[in-house]
């Protein structure tokens, strides 16, 4: 079963109860599968969603590195022209926290959540977009956890995770593989 089919099944299950659109369902499903695979355990109402942290990498970069990153990328250099010219490192550093892992480090979670923005080049003030999406995901998961259909839903998700896990077992870089499979 490919990811689109999974989303549809998941969406059909939650549609009458919770979620407004299929896009939201996809994000939530990805977050749940990502967490289950990373934690190597079944999802239930007590599971806390893992959202990746890359603070060590992004916060340790010097100012000239951040400027280089924005200047070197053709799309970003146009979008952030004003900030680059004014050397507004406060703003650039804030956006760098999301853009660098998204574009250069290919962090699977960010790449999935922000795939539309990445495709369309809609990368201006991306940190705000990301924060809103993250908030929606967490709210959606909260709704699921307290809903009447949660047991049925978690069982379906755990079955999906099991199918994925069996396939990716023994592979070295499993996050990459999850992303490949789910995209």
């Amino acid at each position: 079963m490919n990811f689109s089919a999974l989303i549809k099944k998941f969406y059909d299950l939650v549609k009458p109860h919770l979620l407004k659109n299929q896009e939201e369902a996809a994000y939530i499903l990805f977050s749940l599968i990502y967490t289950a695979l990373k934690r190597n355990e079944r999802i239930n109402e007590n599971t806390k969603i893992i959202i990746p942290r890359l603070s060590t990498i992004v916060s340790s970069k010097p100012d000239d590195f951040i400027l280089y990153f924005f200047e070197e990328n053709k799309v970003l250099s146009k979008l952030y022209q004003k900030e680059i010219r004014e050397k507004d490192l406060k703003t650039l550093r804030e956006e760098f926290k999301i853009l660098y892992p998204l574009i250069e480090l290919k962090e699977p979670f960010l790449c999935f959540i922000l795939q539309d923005e990445l495709k369309k080049g809609n990368l201006y003030r991306i940190s705000k977009i990301y924060k809103n999406k993250r908030k929606k995901i967490l709210e959606g998961i909260k709704k699921i956890k307290t809903s009447k259909i949660k047991d049925n839903l978690f069982n379906t998700i755990n079955l999906m995770v099991k199918a994925f896990a069996e396939e990716i077992y023994d592979k070295k870089n499993f996050r990459e593989i999850i992303f490949e499979k789910l995209s």
């Binding site: 990498i57 590195f65 892992p101 250069e104 290919k106 962090e107």
Partner: peptide, 18 residues
């Protein structure tokens, strides 16, 4: 690890440039 490796390789590009 993979993510660190990508960071290092990009950083090397930055260092070599300067």
């Amino acid at each position: 690890g993979e993510i660190y490796k990508r960071d290092i390789l990009y950083s090397i590009k930055f260092i070599l440039k300067s």
